[in-house]
């Protein structure tokens, strides 16, 4: 099915700016046809381990949740309310101190009720993968209409 270009822009705006993602300095760079990219800069107040300067796992969780949601939105042909059902994260290695983190996600399947997504996060500077994720989202479609 053809994607509506206006909807693509709307999807990016809707999922790119949430108060929490903006507060942690995150930005959805791209969301189109089921794929999304986001970026978050290293910042002092995001540190989770004061001894090493490594960013808190919760920041990675926020990045991946936002990103997977953006991928789902951009895979839909119309705006629908979505909600994270579950999110599983593997922390492959700690984020490097002082480096921005970039995430990518792909929505692999959209059914009537559920969307399935895979994502990853890496250090921007050295491209090292720091986390992988698998997520499922609930879709709320208008009642009585198959879309």
């Amino acid at each position: 099915m053809m994607q509506n270009p206006d909807w693509q822009d709307q999807a990016r705006r809707m999922v790119g700016v949430t108060p929490w993602f903006a507060a942690i300095g995150g930005e959805v760079v791209m969301a189109r046809a089921g794929r999304a990219m986001a970026r978050i800069s290293w910042r002092e107040d995001l540190i989770g381990d004061p001894q090493t300067g490594v960013i808190h796992g919760g920041v990675i969780t926020s990045l991946l949740d936002q990103l997977c949601g953006a991928a789902v939105m951009s895979a839909l042909n119309q705006p629908l309310p979505i909600a994270t059902l579950d999110l599983r994260i593997d922390y492959l290695k700690p984020a490097a101190k002082g480096m921005a983190i970039v995430g990518e996600a792909e929505c692999l399947k959209v059914t009537h009720e559920i969307a399935f997504v895979r994502g990853s996060a890496h250090n921007e500077a050295d491209q090292e993968v720091i986390a992988l994720c698998t997520a499922a989202f609930m879709l709320t479609r208008p009642e009585g209409r198959a879309t």
Partner: peptide, 24 residues
């Protein structure tokens, strides 16, 4: 806090906020 919001329409806490508190 207002900054913890992920969905302004409902409003609802961001999934990342929920993950961060649970992980902590």
């Amino acid at each position: 806090d207002q900054k913890l919001i992920g969905n302004t329409i409902l409003p609802a806490l961001h999934g990342g906020v929920i993950g961060a508190l649970l992980e902590t």
